[in-house]
Simulated scan of single mutants.
Amino acid sequence: MILNETFTLSNGVTIPKLGLGTWMVDDNKAAQAVRDAVKIGYRNIDTAEAYGNERGVGEGVRSSGVPRDELFVSTKLAAEIKDYDTAVAAINGSLETLDIGYIDLMLIHAPQPWAELHRADYSEGNRQAWRALEEAYQAGKIRAIGVSNFLEADVENILEYGSVVPQVNQIEVNPGNTPTELIAFCQAKNILVESYSPIAHGKILTNPEVATLANKYGVSVAQLCIRYTLQLNTVSLPKTANPEHQRTNADVDFVISDDDMVSLRDLHTGD
């Protein structure tokens, strides 16, 4: 069962292959979403400072009925934070807001502020933010550190100037939007890739080609897309607060053929 399967990060920390994404889940609904997911069997919960729901996620973890050390909780340093002092304050702020003792994984949310994503150079700012994460990691406040939405050059900047190699790069991956070269680059560096928005923010649910393939396997489009990202050897992070969707998202113990994996990779989405 996929909920029992894990990857091992480069530092030996294990991370469940399927996680619960909480983007767009209101803070006042996040605790129940986490409790529902944990009851179903999820052990990997992903949040971010920018989501505004760290408080609710932390409450859900504390009240889940499952020991803290059996859960893997990720959060992210806001993309706009590109200096050391602000990063240190934000890391401590997330620790305080979550109130779960420690963070399993913390990422730099993006290499540039969202309004400037991939259009401006914040190399020095990322190095400063990374130094703050490294110190929190070495102090035992965080069990693993990584990046998100980083392209190859952004990762190389951290590899060149940092003292800790990122353990994770969390990027958008779904059929028709598969950055194959970036995934291969990260995997060659022993950086685990996490796939967010495996269902393409819901847009792919009406794609007729994907629907045809899903019917072939007797599964839903969402299940096919989640399985696709898992078979790329990435962590899959579908987001939902709906317990029934959480349950069906985890029912992905089937295998997509090599030919169909290629078809999904090369899918024309019309975007």
Rank of each mutant, 00 (worst) to 15 (best):
R131L: 02
T47W: 06
W130C: 02
G270W: 04
G101V: 04
T240L: 02
T14Y: 06
A79E: 04
G218L: 00
Q128F: 05
V255C: 14
A110S: 12
R247G: 12
V73K: 13
E156C: 06
F185T: 08
L237M: 07
A136H: 12
A132M: 05
A79D: 03
L95A: 07
T86R: 15
K29F: 13
V61P: 00
V57P: 02
A87C: 04
T75A: 01
I204F: 07
S63L: 13
G218C: 03
A87M: 08
P166M: 01
G140A: 03
E156W: 10
V221I: 06
V57K: 08
L3Q: 11
T97M: 09
R35G: 03
A115D: 15
A87W: 10
K189Y: 01
A50T: 12
D121F: 01
T212R: 15
G146A: 05
I199D: 03
I191L: 02
D36S: 09
S10N: 12
P238E: 00
I15F: 11
F7V: 01
V66Q: 14
F7K: 11
W130M: 01
K76Y: 07
I226F: 11
S257F: 13
A200S: 12
A144C: 04
P175L: 03
D258N: 14
N174E: 11
T22F: 00
N233I: 00
G162V: 02
N215R: 14
R62D: 00
F254H: 07
V219S: 12
T206E: 13
I204N: 15
E80W: 03
E181A: 15
V165N: 11
L71V: 05
G270Y: 04
G125P: 04
L117P: 07
Y161P: 00
S220F: 02
I171L: 06
L95K: 09
E135W: 01
K76W: 09
W114F: 13
E209C: 11
K39G: 11
V147A: 08
G270S: 09
V38M: 11
Q167S: 15
V252M: 06
Y196H: 14
I15L: 04
Q246I: 00
D26I: 00
A120S: 13
A89Q: 13
V210D: 02
L232P: 00
I2N: 07
T178G: 02
I108R: 11
E70H: 13
L159Y: 06
W114R: 15
I91Q: 10
T206S: 14
Q167V: 07
R265P: 06
V235G: 02
K82L: 00
S195C: 12
D266C: 06
E5D: 09
G93A: 06
A30D: 03
Q32C: 02
I40R: 15
E160P: 00
F254Q: 07
D46V: 01
N233K: 13
K189C: 02
V34F: 04
P179K: 08
C225S: 09
N249L: 04
V57I: 06
S195M: 01
A37P: 12
